[in-house]
């Protein structure tokens, strides 16, 4: 059976991992390569590297970070933050990213999703949607949650799929970094409206939150940062717990260096 994916997010600024609360107040959480290495041993299914400042200097550091992470990990790697053009996308793909995540640039020019899907395939194009509750609906925000995009999250998810996005990385701005649980109403609404996988993000705090978003929230994958970075919970412990609750997850590899790796 298709496993529910557990994805670790590395918010990177100038080559270091940082993590904020509700998109503000970034604090240091470590070196991206050593974190990525640890998660890989623990059985993470995928990594997302987000360049959270995306200044010119930061972008050069990002390429170096992607190369270093991709050099030793053989699992899917998505990269986002500040990708505004086909050239930006090519730079991170050439550095070793398997997927590119587009947010503000896709809102400004939805045709960029189509252009990148034609060039790299839909499986390489992730649309990142940052949404905030607005009454009974969810409003989309651009520019790291600072600018209302005037779009409804469900409606934008449908359009992004039609334009060529292969996955949706759906973040609840209200829950980001709060560890109060995923916004399951949001993920269920979007997941039910599209055919492509939905990655839930924002609010992971306990193992129960993951079970909740995979069942009630109808998410295909769940992404977290804080609870993994500070080693409060290992990915392996989370997966073992989820498996015990009947959620299909990829079994954790038993040893850090299995026989197959050494045979290479």
């Amino acid at each position: 059976m298709l496993s529910k994916r557990i994805i670790a997010c590395l918010d990177v600024r100038d080559g270091s991992v940082v993590k904020g609360v509700q998109f503000e107040g970034l604090g240091h959480a470590g070196d991206p390569v050593s974190l990525a290495r640890r998660y890989n041993v623990e059985g993470i299914d995928e990594l997302v590297v987000l360049d959270v400042t995306a200044t010119l200097e930061s972008r050069r550091a990002l390429v170096t970070t992607i190369q270093a992470v991709a050099a030793e990990l053989f699992i899917p790697l998505a990269v986002g933050g500040g990708i505004r053009s086909a050239d930006d996308a090519a730079a991170v793909i050439d550095a070793g990213a398997d997927k590119i995540s587009l947010n503000s640039a896709a809102l400004a020019d939805p045709g960029l999703l189509t252009a990148l899907a034609r060039r790299y395939g839909s499986q390489a194009v992730v649309v990142a949607i940052d949404a905030k509750r607005d009454g009974a609906r969810y409003a989309v925000f651009a520019r790291s949650g600072t600018a209302a995009a005037g779009r409804d999250a469900v409606e934008w998810a449908r359009e992004a799929e039609a334009r060529g996005a292969g996955e949706i990385l759906l973040t609840s701005i209200d829950r980001d970094g709060t560890r109060a649980g995923f916004e399951c109403h949001l993920t269920a609404a979007v997941s039910g409206a599209v055919q492509i996988p939905v990655i839930a993000s924002g609010g992971a705090g306990t193992f129960e939150h993951f079970e909740d978003v995979f069942t009630r929230g109808r998410a295909d994958a769940a992404l977290a940062a804080s609870i993994f970075h500070f080693a409060e919970h290992s990915v392996a412990d989370l997966k073992t717990w989820l498996a015990g609750r009947g959620i299909p997850v990829r079994a954790v590899q038993s040893a850090p260096a299995p026989e197959g790796r050494r045979a290479c």
């Binding site: 298709l2 496993s3 492509i196 069942t215």
Partner: peptide
Amino acid sequence: GAPGPSSDGLKVPHVGWND
């Protein structure tokens, strides 16, 4: 026909880790 916690329909493309 896909069983599972979110069995509201089969998602295609098939993306992720499987047996």
